[in-house]
Amino acid sequence: MENQASSPSKMVSAAKRVLGIEADALRLLSDHLPADFEAVVTLILNTKGRVIISGIGKSGHIGNKIAATLASTGTPSSFVHASEASHGDLGMITNDDIVVLISNSGETRELSDVLAHTRRFSIPLIGISSRPGSTLMAAADYQLLLPPAPEACPMGMAPTTSTTLTLAIGDALAVALMEARDFKAENFATFHPGGKLGAQLSTVAQLMHGVDALPLVSKDTAMEEVLIEMTSKGFGTTGVVEGEALIGIVSDGDLRRNMAHLMSATAGEVATLSPVTAAPDMLAAQALALMNERKITTLFAVDEANRPVGILHLHDLLRAGVA
């Protein structure tokens, strides 16, 4: 029986070996990107329907993830289990769709009905496989051929490197499509409304208090009235405007710094001029970073003419789950 003290080093060695093998395979894939990759991206961009991904076993799990990534990044996509397709789910595939079949060997028997369905109804077929002469790749209209690379499994049997390469080519497709569509953070937020990610992708406009809630005074306002405005609106600050433009803010800190002559001063004399502001379309996460950087708890949102249109408090970000 081996000494238990040597086990951790063997575990680490195994992990490094696996990661090294798969990293080498990914570099090989990057250096030998499938010849049809660009054509596949163009095909997907121009399709009227969805991208249907199908596979079985480990390839099915990877296919499910690829479909989910595509769908969340602006490419309508669904996963159809190859076995279920043979029992009615072929009806989920329409003539407007594109089908991607995944099989490392290219000879997976369970894919035959989906493959035949695409040929019967002239549905574009993309094959992902590491065997160029396989049944799948011979039938496919477009081939995403994976480079020959050893499995990380010591017996060379368990899908490891091959599934990593398949997942990577799926990610490459998704990102290439995102960039081709100029897919932006606000688009991403549309498909990720829940949880912390969705909150961080919210904009200032979605979380801020509107014009009716704004604490505002003119620069000539007496400090007695400024204090009433600050207290009544409950933000611990007030904006100072000249005409319609925001020129400064009065905060608790400004009150303390001007305590000696506070009640004889005007808002414009006490205010911090040219304050930090936010655009309504700024991401909530960026607003939080700005607050942290400047050590402030409120941000006025202003339009292109520097007119205040809203106010955002740190507590609003906390309630939304951004912070």
Results as ranks from 00 to 15, higher is better:
A35D: 09
F183L: 13
P76S: 04
M263Y: 15
N64I: 14
L111F: 01
M157T: 07
A260I: 15
I247D: 03
G20Q: 02
P124N: 04
K196H: 11
F37I: 08
L29D: 07
S129R: 06
A301W: 00
S129C: 12
L197G: 00
L136E: 00
L273N: 07
E269N: 11
F188W: 09
S54N: 08
C153V: 05
M155G: 07
A260V: 12
L28P: 02
F235E: 03
L144V: 13
T190E: 13
I123K: 10
K184G: 08
A305M: 12
T221H: 03
S129T: 14
G55T: 08
D252F: 12
E84K: 04
F235I: 03
E229R: 09
D316P: 01
G236K: 12
L216A: 05
E151I: 02
A320T: 06
K10M: 09
I102L: 15
K48E: 14
S103P: 10
K219N: 11
G57C: 10
A140R: 04
D303V: 03
A265G: 03
V41I: 14
S162N: 06
S218W: 10
A180V: 05
D24M: 01
M259Q: 14
A39K: 15
S7R: 15
K184C: 13
V302E: 02
G195V: 09
A14S: 12
A289E: 14
A39G: 09
K48N: 15
T118C: 15
D252W: 06
T161C: 00
A323V: 04
R294S: 07
K233L: 03
